[in-house]
Design a protein around this nucleic acid. Structure first.
Lengths: 145, 145
DNA sequence: GGATTTAGTTAGCTATGCTAATTACTTGCA
DNA sequence: TGCAAGTAATTAGCATAGCTAACTAAATCC
């Protein structure tokens, strides 16, 4: 496979993989952005709105609306910050934590099951590919951003 | 790496790869859905609205609006279908074709350049991983859909 | 203690997705 | 042949998610 082909097909396969996984995510009853924000709360612990927005690469007003939705669904809570009365701490509720972990388990199950269809050699190649991509993606493109 | 870790990290790396590439796509001045629809027109030739919608996994009204936007930007054209007066044929204009091919080249350049940072062995692993994933993604999940 | 900065929200715009309903044409059949 | 049923596209209207600009309230700085 030429390097150009590899590049092209890498792009294509990433698109299709995510498209496939999105269906499983939908079973959680949460849109992608909401699930993703909740995930940050569950795995990263309570944060401010600004931090959460940054983590999700989104502007504060956008994140405020996502948090509104999570709150309304009983999956997250805004709490007062004792040391800074302007700020809020956003925390996943037990119910939010449970929902997210279940969805994650479901996605993992699906992916793991899919990977059953690969030989050991292929799995090894996938592991190498993942590490390689992680390394190559490291710097957020040269010096901009 | 355990199979579960592999699954998890495969998911994560796909997300980050696409996030990176999206920046390059933005330089084309076209949103993802518009660029993707235009791509179908350029590489697949003229099609009906319904076909285009299906190819993009979107409902006809959604596609109609995307085509409106492409048309307004001078990148695609609606033409009458001689054999069925209800239908339209949608075709990329030369300008649309040019824009898309340039964007694609840019994305390819970026990806190819990124892949320069991989050793030959890593590139081989990536090629194997891509083929494997293409095979595993083949059936659109068991018998639903 | 007043000016500036910072955290979050509100208001309002655009884009993308959907469903339901409409219009116009084609097809099928009695 | 002519009308019923089906099909292609559009229109209307709703929700979500992104943005910027403008505002409120609190913290910080001099």
């Amino acid at each position: 496979m030429s390097k150009d082909d590899l590049a092209q097909q890498l792009h294509s396969v990433a698109i299709h993989l995510l498209r496939r996984l999105r269906r499983t995510d939908d079973q959680m009853g949460l849109s992608g952005p909401r699930a993703s924000a909740l995930s940050v709360l569950v795995f990263g612990g309570p944060t401010s709105l600004a931090q959460l927005a940054k983590a999700e690469q989104v502007k504060p007003p956008t994140m405020a609306r996502l948090v509104d939705a999570l709150e309304q669904a009983g999956l997250a809570r805004r709490e007062a910050d004792k040391t800074d009365l302007r700020a809020v701490r956003i925390r996943a509720t037990p119910r939010g934590r449970k929902l997210l972990l279940e969805g994650r388990a479901r996605r993992l199950r699906q992916l793991t099951q899919m990977l059953e269809g690969a030989t050991s050699a292929e799995q090894a190649a996938l592991a190498t590919a993942v590490s390689t991509l992680q390394r190559l993606l490291q710097p957020p493109t040269p010096p901009k951003d």
